[in-house]
Simulated scan of single mutants.
Amino acid sequence: MSLSTLSRAPLVATLAVALGVAAVAPAANAADNERGFYAGAGVGQSLVDEGGYDDEDTAFSAFGGYQFNRYFALEAGYADFGELESRAVASDLEASSGYLVAVGSVPFTTNLSGYAKAGLHRWDLDSSLPLVIGNRDDSGTDPTYGVGLQYRFNDTVALRGEYSRFEIEDADLDLAQLQLRFDF
């Protein structure tokens, strides 16, 4: 082995370590950016086709959560389903919901991911479903679940398209919406 080969070995090793650190540092920083609080709002359509109800209306939502890593978050939110008209009875259905869900994400690319969520929601109706005798206010707790796609524009802003189902007693209320998410 020549002297010139020995003197290059430390230089090559130093360059290899420097390139390795440079490659790992952005990944570690990106992992830190995937954790933290987020909040957002959405608008879309609520849909019901149960009993005497077959209608849709504009719906709004607000949500917030904590992203533990790029694969898991906990999220709480509020959804106002609007006013859904009945075709069989003389009362309209006005519904809202507060929910808590676990969100599992699968990244497809750096900016695009899919997610599924499931949890419980506390719903409130200001008139009962036709399945319940009488015309009174009603509330309860039932499961909710949904799927969506998220496109991240940068580290703080993402657009989500989501389809969720909210079970209400023996009925299903669906919500299709676009949401903006802001990470802190």
Rank of each mutant, 00 (worst) to 15 (best):
Ala9Ile: 05
Leu11Tyr: 06
Val12Met: 08
Ala13Asn: 10
Ala13Trp: 05
Thr14Pro: 00
Ala16Gln: 13
Val17Pro: 03
Ala18Glu: 11
Leu19Ile: 13
Leu19Cys: 11
Gly20His: 13
Val21Phe: 15
Val21Thr: 15
Ala23Val: 00
Ala23Ile: 02
Ala23Pro: 05
Pro26Arg: 00
Pro26Lys: 09
Ala27Met: 13
Ala27Thr: 13
Asn29Lys: 07
Ala30Gly: 05
Ala31Arg: 00
Ala31Ser: 06
Ala31Pro: 00
Asp32Trp: 01
Glu34Gly: 07
Phe37Asn: 04
Gly40Asp: 10
Ser46Asp: 04
Leu47Pro: 06
Asp49Ser: 07
Tyr53Ala: 02
Asp54Glu: 06
Asp54Asn: 11
Asp55Trp: 04
Asp55Pro: 08
Asp55Asn: 02
Glu56Asn: 14
Thr58Val: 06
Thr58Arg: 02
Thr58Tyr: 04
Phe60Gly: 03
Phe60Trp: 07
Ser61Leu: 01
Ala62Arg: 05
Phe63Glu: 03
Phe63Gly: 03
Phe68Ala: 10
Phe68Lys: 01
Asn69Tyr: 01
Tyr71Gly: 10
Phe72Met: 11
Ala73His: 07
Leu74Thr: 12
Leu74Ser: 09
Ala76Gln: 04
Ala76Phe: 11
Gly77Ile: 00
Tyr78Cys: 10
Tyr78Asn: 11
Ala79Gln: 09
Ala79Glu: 10
Asp80Cys: 08
Asp80Ile: 02
Phe81Thr: 07
Gly82Arg: 08
Gly82Gln: 13
Gly82Leu: 05
Glu83Phe: 03
Glu83Val: 12
Ser86Gly: 08
Ser86Thr: 02
Arg87Glu: 15
Arg87Leu: 08
Arg87Gly: 14
Arg87Ala: 09
Val89Gln: 10
Val89Arg: 12
Ser91Trp: 09
Ser91Asp: 14
Ser91Glu: 15
Glu94Asn: 09
Ala95Val: 00
Ser97Trp: 01
Ser97Ile: 01
Gly98Ser: 12
Tyr99Glu: 03
Leu100Pro: 03
Leu100His: 03
Ala102Ser: 03
Val103Asn: 10
Gly104Ile: 08
Gly104Met: 05
Ser105Met: 10
Ser105Pro: 07
Val106Ser: 15
Val106Gln: 13
Pro107Gln: 11
Phe108Thr: 13
Phe108Trp: 09
Thr110Arg: 15
Ser113Asp: 11
Ser113Trp: 06
Tyr115Asn: 12
Tyr115Gln: 12
Ala116Val: 12
Ala116Ile: 15
Ala116Thr: 12
Ala116Trp: 12
Lys117Ile: 01
Lys117Pro: 06
Lys117Glu: 09
Ala118Gly: 09
Ala118Asp: 06
Gly119Thr: 03
Leu120Tyr: 05
Arg122Leu: 13
Trp123Gly: 09
Trp123His: 09
Trp123Lys: 04
Trp123Met: 12
Asp124Gly: 12
Leu125Tyr: 14
Asp126Ala: 11
Leu129Glu: 07
Leu129Cys: 08
Leu129Arg: 09
Pro130Ala: 14
Pro130Asp: 15
Leu131Val: 14
Val132Glu: 10
Gly134Lys: 05
Asn135His: 03
Arg136Met: 10
Arg136Asn: 14
Asp137Tyr: 11
Asp138Arg: 13
Ser139His: 15
Ser139Phe: 08
Gly140Cys: 06
Thr141Lys: 06
Pro143His: 05
Pro143Leu: 08
Thr144Lys: 09
Tyr145Gly: 08
Tyr145Val: 07
Gly146Leu: 01
Gly148Pro: 00
Gly148Leu: 01
